[in-house]
């Protein structure tokens, strides 16, 4: 995936390499050797002339693709802004000649581009992250299809693709349960919510919530019961460890957690560590959370 790509070199590997060359090369040598032997045994000039034509076919067929692959250009002209790890992402690829383009970072199915300049190049990013380029193997066997020569290209994307992590299982243990804990209520602004009834006092309730007339009427300490605020934010802090695999799992769990909380109609403040520093901002949906998690880097800590 692009995260491992050299940062400052979206250019090309200028020297194509032959792919599985042993068979064609040995076949060519055997053919030309046998042909030379026949020409010299028969003493016929036309056999030798025909052998020269065959040599022309074989040499052009074996070496021509190197030239074609060397000269071939690929460009990504458009693509999505978002993606999800493990799910295909399609880009629009333009080539200046027929080639076989195989994405290798992230991987994807090969595309052959003989029927026009524009094609869909599909990759499947295995991890979350910010995808700014693709690594591809651009191969050509032109003009005769006898041997493939391939070069590795790093194709810059027209805009970065933020690859969200997969949605993992939500982290139940880390979620706070505001209404059942009086301590939590202490942190809520008293002006938040509206009174909807009376209930018995539970430890932790604020003193000014006590409803004295009802207390007098019931003979027990009664407090006003308040509506929970609909946008009461839940803070989710994501601390990614240095180990990439573990970090990926943490991010997946974080996205699952955020999605679940958001699904409950509650607001989430997502705290992540990005390259520019800690970011603490609310997220309004799983997609935005995925983008934030895509940009998250290891580091940070509780309430960093």
């Amino acid at each position: 995936m692009s995260r491992a790509a050299p940062a400052a070199d979206p250019g090309t590997d200028p020297f194509p390499r032959p792919l599985r060359a042993a068979g064609p090369v040995i076949g060519t040598l055997v053919t030309l050797g046998a042909w030379t032997a026949i020409a010299r045994t028969s003493g016929s000039g036309w056999v030798q002339a025909l052998g020269a034509v065959i040599a022309g076919f074989l040499l052009v067929g074996l070496l021509g693709p190197a030239w074609a692959a060397r000269r071939g250009h690929c460009t990504i002209v458009s693509g999505p802004a978002d993606g999800t790890a493990g799910r295909p992402v399609a880009f629009e690829l333009v080539t200046d000649r027929p080639m076989r383009v195989t994405p290798v970072g992230p991987a994807g199915p090969a595309v052959v581009t003989g029927d026009g300049p524009r094609h869909l190049l599909v990759v499947v990013p295995p991890y979350r992250g910010e995808l700014v380029s693709l690594e591809v193997e651009a191969a050509s066997a032109a003009p005769f299809g006898l041997l493939w020569w391939s070069k590795r290209l790093t194709l810059a994307l027209p805009r970065p693709v933020l690859v969200a992590p997969r949605r993992g299982d939500p982290d139940q243990a880390g979620q706070s349960d505001g209404p059942s804990r009086g301590d939590d209520a202490a942190r809520v602004d008293s002006r938040v919510g509206e009174s909807r009834g009376i209930r018995e006092y539970v430890p932790g309730d604020l003193r000014h919530w006590v409803h004295w007339p009802a207390t007098a009427h019931a003979g027990a300490l009664m407090v006003r019961e308040m509506e929970q605020p609909a946008d009461r934010p839940v803070t989710v802090e994501v601390v990614l460890p240095a180990d990439p695999e573990t970090a990926e799992r943490v991010a997946e769990r974080a996205l699952g957690t955020v999605a679940q909380i958001l699904g409950q109609g509650r607001q989430v403040i997502l705290v992540t560590e990005e390259r520019s520093g800690p970011v603490r901002q609310p997220v309004d949906g799983p997609a935005q959370a995925g983008r934030r998690l895509a940009k998250a880097v290891p580091g940070g800590g509780p309430w960093a």
Binding site: R3, A7, P10, G11, H73, G129
Partner: peptide
């Protein structure tokens, strides 16, 4: 400098990976 889209240096990529 290099032609845009082909050799222009790009910012580093790879969030979450060393």
């Amino acid at each position: 400098g290099p032609e845009p889209g082909r050799t222009t240096p790009r910012p580093p990529v790879g969030a979450g990976r060393p």
